[in-house]
């Protein structure tokens, strides 16, 4: 059984056609990267999967369950954790309160355990979400999704706008998720880091899947990585 199977997604924002027959899958325990330039439709793909922007055509199956057209809360209840672009933490709530929003599913992840995973957060429990740094907000967004005890985790540009050291932390956490047996679909601008952690990769361009294959093969294709990553390829090299 696959963690995620998306078949021929056609998604629109109003009249603009964003996704054109996007088909992708994530196997159980697999880490899959979804890459592409700005505006290629990566975020829309994730929003289509979690039910925020349901596709007009096509189907989504999650752990074998046909979830097309389901409201987001029912999809989340299957064990789908979603870390949205720009983190979208609740700035008006304290950090502790942020962690009380998710409807926790039973499993190994509890508030105690996420505070152990992110000791930085446990020092700031009483702070409002908006007072946290970008890195702390990212940790909080991941912690919040982990409380659902996800079997499938969707991450939308978790490294965006973070300092290089924090980016390394974030990718370490993604590696740890794999060790926990969580299936991951990772949207990233940071192509090199993403292909390093992923098993397989897809490349989206203008709403269509234009590449599908092993992440290592994509990582070895220097020319492709450069066109995909644009300016961010240089940035990553500078970090190393």
């Amino acid at each position: 059984m696959k963690a995620l199977e998306a078949q021929g997604l056609q998604t629109y924002y109003g009249k603009s056609h964003i996704l054109d027959s996007v088909t992708l899958e994530v196997g159980e325990g697999e880490v899959v990267a979804l890459l592409g330039r700005n505006g290629a439709g990566k975020t829309t793909t994730l929003r289509s999967i979690v039910g925020l922007t349901p596709p007009r055509l096509g189907s989504v199956r999650i752990f074998g369950e046909a979830v097309t057209g389901w409201p987001p809360y029912r999809i989340a209840a299957l064990g789908v954790g979603y870390v949205p672009e720009g983190r979208r933490i609740f700035g008006n709530l304290t950090l502790d309160e942020n962690l009380l929003v998710p409807v926790a599913r039973p499993g190994p992840w509890t508030i105690e355990r996420v505070y152990q995973l992110f000791p930085r957060l446990s020092e700031r429990r009483e702070n409002k979400g908006r007072q946290l740094s970008g890195g702390e907000q990212e940790m909080l967004a991941i912690a919040r999704a982990l409380l659902l005890n996800p079997r499938l985790l969707l991450l939308d540009e978790p490294s965006q706008g973070l300092a290089p050291l924090i980016v390394q932390d974030v990718f370490k956490i993604i590696g740890a998720m794999r060790a926990e047996g969580i299936s991951v679909l990772l949207v990233e601008q940071n192509v090199r880091a993403a292909v390093a952690v992923a098993d397989r990769a897809y490349v989206l361009d203008d709403g269509r899947i234009v590449y599908e294959g092993a992440a290592a093969a994509l990582g070895a294709d220097e020319a492709r990585v450069r066109t995909l990553a644009g300016a961010s390829a240089e940035k990553w090299e500078a970090v190393d």
Binding site: P72, P84, R88, F90
Partner: peptide, 19 residues
């Protein structure tokens, strides 16, 4: 707490499993 969170960003509250 969910009501207050929803005031801020209802879509994100929904993706966290809240009806």
């Amino acid at each position: 707490i969910r009501i207050r969170a929803g005031t801020h960003d209802l879509a994100t509250v929904a993706t966290l499993g809240v009806n």
